[in-house]
Amino acid sequence: MRKDTIVIREIVAKDNPKIAKAIRTVLIEMGVPKVGTAYEDAALDCMTETYDQPKKAYFVVESGNDIIGGAGISPLDNYEGNVCELQKMYFMQEARGKGLGSEMMNKCLDFAKQSGFEQCYLETLPYMDGARKLYRKVGFKSIDKPMGNTGHYSCTVWMLKDL
């Protein structure tokens, strides 16, 4: 697969089943618990509708007819303050190691800044080393406790970035 045939774009309705399958495939591959994580989120099956609201966006990585990854920005749930959350950033094996993570981070963080957010929060798992390395590279710092209440109680690494 060549990187020049890959497109990062906003999600459309026909992508819903493809991104749901991609995210669940990656979560299973990584051994992520099926409870207390994105795996059980109802939004996975209706991503277009979930992100079709003010100050929300979800972007997919498209290769031909396949969706091989994605990530989104949304206001942080159950939190008072001007903070967004980087959500559901997952890439299939064939999308990794091509610089797409950095490209996706830039797209998401640019959207967050344009939407007027002051900080971006994320949750991940301690063994997702590649993801944490990318997050640190773009300026996310580890914090001691979760912010808001995302329902992802199995995610025990919390990070925050000033925008």
Results as ranks from 00 to 15, higher is better:
residue 2 R to L: 09
residue 3 K to R: 10
residue 4 D to C: 14
residue 4 D to K: 12
residue 7 V to W: 12
residue 7 V to D: 12
residue 9 R to H: 02
residue 9 R to K: 14
residue 12 V to Q: 08
residue 13 A to M: 07
residue 14 K to F: 05
residue 14 K to L: 13
residue 14 K to G: 06
residue 16 N to I: 13
residue 19 I to K: 03
residue 19 I to W: 04
residue 20 A to F: 04
residue 21 K to S: 03
residue 21 K to C: 15
residue 25 T to Y: 07
residue 26 V to Q: 02
residue 26 V to H: 02
residue 27 L to I: 03
residue 27 L to T: 01
residue 27 L to Y: 06
residue 27 L to Q: 07
residue 28 I to N: 03
residue 28 I to W: 05
residue 29 E to Y: 15
residue 30 M to H: 10
residue 30 M to L: 12
residue 32 V to R: 03
residue 33 P to F: 12
residue 34 K to R: 12
residue 34 K to I: 14
residue 34 K to L: 11
residue 36 G to E: 15
residue 42 A to D: 12
residue 43 A to P: 08
residue 44 L to S: 11
residue 45 D to E: 12
residue 45 D to L: 09
residue 46 C to K: 14
residue 49 E to K: 14
residue 50 T to N: 15
residue 50 T to I: 04
residue 52 D to L: 11
residue 53 Q to Y: 06
residue 54 P to I: 10
residue 54 P to F: 10
residue 55 K to W: 11
residue 56 K to Y: 13
residue 56 K to P: 04
residue 56 K to N: 09
residue 57 A to I: 11
residue 57 A to R: 13
residue 58 Y to I: 05
residue 60 V to P: 10
residue 61 V to N: 13
residue 61 V to W: 04
residue 61 V to T: 08
residue 62 E to A: 10
residue 62 E to S: 05
residue 64 G to F: 11
residue 65 N to R: 02
residue 66 D to A: 04
residue 68 I to P: 05
residue 69 G to A: 01
residue 70 G to I: 06
residue 72 G to N: 05
residue 74 S to P: 11
residue 75 P to I: 03
residue 75 P to G: 03
residue 76 L to K: 04
residue 77 D to L: 15
residue 79 Y to P: 14
residue 80 E to F: 08
residue 81 G to H: 13
residue 81 G to C: 08
residue 82 N to V: 12
residue 83 V to Y: 03
residue 83 V to P: 11
residue 87 Q to W: 13
residue 87 Q to D: 10
residue 88 K to D: 03
residue 89 M to W: 11
residue 90 Y to R: 14
residue 90 Y to A: 13
residue 92 M to H: 05
residue 93 Q to C: 12
residue 94 E to R: 09
residue 97 G to S: 11
residue 98 K to D: 06
residue 100 L to F: 08
residue 100 L to P: 13
residue 101 G to P: 13
residue 104 M to I: 14
residue 108 C to D: 06
residue 108 C to T: 10
residue 108 C to K: 10
residue 110 D to H: 11
residue 110 D to N: 10
residue 112 A to V: 01
residue 114 Q to R: 04
residue 114 Q to E: 07
residue 115 S to T: 09
residue 116 G to M: 05
residue 116 G to V: 01
residue 117 F to P: 05
residue 119 Q to D: 10
residue 119 Q to P: 14
residue 120 C to T: 05
residue 121 Y to F: 07
residue 121 Y to N: 00
residue 122 L to G: 00
residue 124 T to I: 08
residue 124 T to M: 02
residue 125 L to M: 04
residue 125 L to D: 07
residue 130 G to N: 01
residue 130 G to W: 00
residue 130 G to H: 06
residue 130 G to K: 02
residue 132 R to Q: 02
residue 133 K to F: 00
residue 135 Y to N: 01
residue 136 R to C: 15
residue 138 V to L: 02
residue 140 F to S: 00
residue 140 F to D: 04
residue 141 K to C: 03
residue 142 S to K: 03
residue 143 I to N: 00
residue 145 K to G: 01
residue 145 K to V: 06
residue 147 M to K: 12
residue 149 N to P: 04
residue 154 S to R: 09
residue 155 C to V: 03
residue 156 T to E: 04
residue 157 V to E: 13
residue 157 V to T: 01
residue 159 M to S: 03
residue 159 M to R: 01
residue 159 M to K: 00
residue 163 L to Y: 09
residue 163 L to C: 07
